[in-house]
Amino acid sequence: MPGHTEYFNPPLRRVSVGNSDEFRQPDTVKAALAEFISTLIFVFAGSGSTMAYNKITASSPATPAGLVAASIAYGFALFVAVSVSANISGGHVNPAVTFGLFVGGNITLFRGLLYIIAQLLGSVAACFLLIFTTGGLETPAFTVSAGVSVWAGLVFEIVMTFGLVYTVYATAVDPNKGQLGTIAPIAIGFIVAANILAGGAFTGASMNPAVSFGPALASFNWTNHWVFWAGPLIGAAIAGIVYEAFFISHSGHERLPGGDY
């Protein structure tokens, strides 16, 4: 209709399944390897900082000083992990981010599954490396804190992950981001650091199923583990749908290649 401006884009219209041949494409394999390495770097630094704090202070990381230390470590580590893999895989470093981009049609299902497998393996490898290098110290698993209901913890993870994936869309995915894209890794690291300060005392502020999966497997502590999958995936899906439906415009732009921001 002439002169008509589209303010609402039907969500999920760009979702793509792809095909199994993607598993054998060299660029996809390289991208998955980049996700494995970047997730390993992120989890090793993040979980390692928590283990170091526990060893040095012999106290819970859910203290003001512990939360600040975790916030800085995870925020800086994510900034680096996203930066070093952004030009190869898009720098997801998080199954929730990958799922949120899939919902928005920015990565295919098959490529996304390969990313998620690589992210989980990277987290597991990081945790077992930490156990080996620290002489057998336990990698602390994410749990819902005492006095916090499971459902409150779930909502915390949904809201925090929504903020994270919304930031990814606004600074890295949106075709109209312009120069804002250059600070995407910083913005992503900052929102994770801020969310740790906000929710760390309640759920540990995972926002990332891979970050939760590695320590849970290494310590074999699965208490309320489902919260750290359901919350991030729901929050990521909502963020992807909202941004794609109301804010992003693909008119006049080519579709983003699978895996690229």
Rank of each mutant, 00 (worst) to 15 (best):
V84F: 09
Y243G: 04
G178S: 06
A152H: 09
F213N: 10
V29T: 06
F213V: 05
F102M: 12
T98P: 02
P140M: 07
V84Q: 13
I188P: 00
F246A: 10
F213C: 11
A236I: 09
S249T: 08
L101V: 13
G91N: 06
P257V: 03
A34S: 12
P175T: 04
P185C: 05
A198V: 13
T39W: 07
G181W: 03
G18D: 02
H225V: 14
L121N: 01
M1C: 06
A187E: 04
A69L: 11
T223Q: 13
I234R: 01
N224G: 08
H225A: 14
N54H: 13
I234K: 00
G235R: 12
Q119Y: 04
T223K: 14
N94D: 12
L33N: 00
E138C: 00
P95L: 06
S212I: 02
G46E: 03
I234N: 01
G163A: 07
P11G: 01
G189N: 01
A170H: 04
T98F: 02
A146S: 15
F128Y: 15
I107A: 03
A194E: 04
F132Y: 14
A81D: 10
N106S: 09
V242H: 00
G189Y: 04
A70G: 12
N176G: 10
T143R: 15
T203M: 03
I186E: 02
Y169M: 09
D260W: 04
L120N: 13
L137S: 15
H92M: 04
N208E: 10
V80R: 03
I191K: 10
F142Y: 15
V165K: 07
F36L: 15
A184D: 06
V159G: 02
R111H: 09
M1F: 12
T5W: 01
P11D: 03
I183Y: 09
G258A: 12
V93T: 11
G135P: 02
E35S: 10
D27A: 06
S219N: 15
P10G: 02
A146G: 11
K177F: 03
F110N: 07
A62L: 13
E157H: 10
Y261P: 15
P175L: 13
L130C: 04
L256Y: 01
H253A: 04
S89Q: 05
Y243Q: 08
M51Q: 11
V82A: 06
T57D: 07
I186Y: 04
A218F: 01
T28G: 07
E22D: 05
F190T: 12
G200Q: 02
S38L: 02
F76C: 08
